[in-house]
Nucleic acid binder design. Structure first.
Lengths: 232, 232
DNA sequence: TGACAAAATATGTAGCTACATAATAATGAT
DNA sequence: ATCATTATTATGTAGCTACATATTTTGTCA
């Protein structure tokens, strides 16, 4: 007998459709993999792969011995890619530009220490810079870099290459945190981003660690009109 | 000989560490799966699983025949779960509340049609509502629902259950788009959210489809202070 | 030289077996 | 009855083989 050679994606879709159709409602238990495999005429390993993917997508929940059930509290699960800012600008078709505003070393303020989950105050590098697209302000970044984990950055010419790019390429991280929120532009920020004080600005805050050691934290304030978009 | 029975996660970590250590830099080519399998004394299928996961995480790129290489343009890849608003409030320890502001049917304006990628104007349901946490405004939502794909919503009492919750539980989607941005509060929005006109507000826009048929689009304006957070 | 066809090759997938692991359910002793 | 122990069971993982698929590379011919 010739095996039907169906892709696990096909099996996933068939299971997903049964969920969409209401045959299995949120909270309902699905048959065990082995039974579904027989029903759909494929190997258990194929069902396993399909189920894993549905689980990763937040559609079902699986527990050993407990079986598989449709998630009772569905979530919209999105995958968000934050690229290097230069790549982001170029991907949108803009001519990338970059300006170093200021850089200095010193102890980090308490607020920054807290963000980095750092107990004792350490000497850090602070970098303020502006990313441009076609000559217009695109994003202002206010960054703190740990000189403990990235001492090499002392020797990098940050007037030529952004700390963003250097860090992403040379300092891989094992853990990070992202925060998104809105902020009102003060006079200085408005001036830097070419807008009026009081404008609503979209902010992306990102902090990275390698294991438990903080690498950097950055507050990226985007110019008016910026939107972060993600699709399935 | 007894196989070492190592988890594919362990293999993934070993490969990841070699990337972190700089043995393989961004853009560099990795050995083929079979060779890595021999080097790490495991089956090719185990390496395959580890590599797939690293690929999903945006760390490496794989191409048939072309082989595997470290992504030359590293990205920060985050997984974002947007729960039902009631669950979100309750998870934060708040007492959830909900108020329907207004609901009416009619043709959608051009702007909404465009968001839904809808060609011809259709009759839709518009729902304005307020989500509360401990009695305080938490989120204002301005929603349009397709009566073509969700005619049942005509019979739902939206003063008791939010359209958000009803839709998520009863109208699964196959595709969606998310947009995040900042907006300035006008007088009405400020009044609804208990703030001053001119305040910077964080907005989440979400549109869902089942195949190509639009289900709903919602503009969720969060109260001041709201942050969207995601960690690894 | 250039275009096109054929061969080679690395990853992707299906199916199988055997065993591991985590829960739950059943059992037995006190 | 209660608690601890043991069996049961559904998913998770490792390893193997065979084959599929997408590219790149090579080879051939005009």
């Amino acid at each position: 007998m010739t095996p039907s050679r169906q892709s696990w994606r096909e099996i996933r879709e068939r299971i997903h459709e049964q969920i969409l159709s209401g045959r299995y409602a949120p909270g309902d238990k699905l048959p065990r993999d082995a039974d579904l495999a027989e029903e759909m005429d494929c190997a258990r390993s194929t069902v396993q792969r399909a189920m894993q993917d549905l689980s990763d997508a937040g559609i079902i929940e699986r527990r050993r011995k407990g079986g598989t059930r449709v998630r009772p509290d569905p979530v919209t699960r999105a995958v968000l890619d934050i690229p290097i800012t230069r790549h982001e600008v170029e991907a949108k078709g803009g001519q990338y530009g970059y300006q170093l505003i200021d850089q200095q070393t010193g102890p980090a303020p308490r607020q920054i220490q807290a963000r980095l989950e750092q107990v004792s105050p350490r000497e850090m590098l602070r970098v303020e810079a502006l990313h441009l697209s076609d000559g217009h302000p695109y994003m202002y970044e206010d960054r703190w870099v740990s000189l403990d984990t990235s001492p090499e950055i002392r020797d990098v010419d940050l007037t030529r290459q952004s700390a963003n790019e250097w860090l992403v390429l040379h300092k891989p991280y094992t853990r990070f945190e992202l925060r998104f929120y809105a902020e009102t532009a003060d006079a200085r920020l408005a001036d830097l981003l070419g807008t009026e004080a009081g404008a609503a600005l979209f902010v992306i805050e990102r902090t990275t660690w390698i294991e438990d050691a903080p690498i950097t934290t950055v507050k990226a304030v985007t110019a008016p009109g910026y939107q972060l978009i993600t699709r399935t």
